[in-house]
Design a protein around this nucleic acid. Structure first.
Length: 263
DNA sequence: GCCAACGTTGGC
DNA sequence: GCCAACGTTGGC
């Protein structure tokens, strides 16, 4: 199975007060009508908390999160959840439940409100980056781990000591162009030998990780490294550059800071 | 649908 | 704590 997101009702056995803590996505459309207050995640100012600091000292601020955009039945439940599904939800917001890998979970626990992530489509005909989402609620208990009927039920996890966490994400925008895995891989291979931002992209170095950080990469080119360390180049700038290049494929256009270092 | 890569489990 | 068996991910 893949990444991990999956849409289904939350908290329908919970009291109202607890429901407020649960997944914000609507389940009314999918299940029998039932009134419950929608949890509306509060958003902090954009420029606050844009960095997260891990105990190791490594800081990540941008992420990639995988989900499956095509229907697949797992234990009788369709796990389909593409970016269009997120976009179609009320408030374009959903919890990111079902992550059952410790490293992926820990990355989610590092996430801060306002940070961005790529929405990656996996296990499908055309895998790749489809859009950009934003963290709107920091890690809290993933209630699906206690739900026997849930695909991601974890009988080993106890309510007094929950194992799994989730965050809430909100649709921000589609990428200007779908960025296929094949393209990412092409750059990854180039950057791995010649240096560049995708040289150690987790998508390839940790292929099975469904929630992963983005970095500016490491390079064998000192010059490039100097550029990256002396100028506040955000990770997303690098990927926006990638988006641009997808749009002007073949053109020599782009006069970006990164142009001399990309290929 | 195949299967390589890799994470998890559990016997010892 | 080793490691073989097993399960999952996800590209192809």
């Amino acid at each position: 199975m893949a990444p991990k997101r999956r849409t289904r009702g939350a908290a329908n056995t919970k009291k109202e007060s607890e429901a407020l803590e649960a997944c914000p996505e609507g389940d009314a459309a999918r299940e029998e009508p039932r009134k419950r207050k929608r949890a509306v995640p509060t958003e902090k100012p954009q420029d606050q908390n844009l960095k997260s600091v891990r105990s190791s000292g490594t800081t990540y601020s941008h992420w990639l999160m995988k989900s499956e955009p095509e229907s697949r039945i797992e234990n009788g439940v369709d796990v389909k959840f593409g970016i269009e599904d997120l976009k179609a939800l009320p408030n374009q917001t959903s919890c990111w439940d079902g992550v059952r890998n410790y490293q992926a979970r820990n990355f989610m626990r590092d996430m801060k409100v306002g940070q961005q992530a790529f929405f990656y489509h996996s296990n499908c005909k055309e895998p790749g980056i489809a859009g950009i989402i934003k963290i709107v609620k920091e890690a809290y208990v993933d209630h699906t781990q206690f739900d026997k009927k849930d695909v991601h039920y974890d009988p080993s996890s106890k309510p007094d000591n929950p194992k799994w966490s989730m965050v809430d994400v909100k649709f921000e925008r589609m990428t200007k162009r779908f960025i296929p895995l094949a393209e990412l891989k092409k750059y990854h291979l180039q950057h791995k030998s010649k240096g560049g931002p995708l040289s150690n992209m987790a998508l390839f170095t940790r292929a099975r990780l469904s929630v992963q950080p983005l970095t500016t990469g490491r390079t064998t080119k000192p010059k490039y490294h100097a550029v990256l360390t002396s100028v506040p180049v955000s990770v997303f700038m690098i990927y926006e550059e990638l988006e641009k290049r997808m749009l002007v494929l073949g053109s020599s256009g782009s006069s970006s800071l990164l142009r001399n270092h990309w290929y």
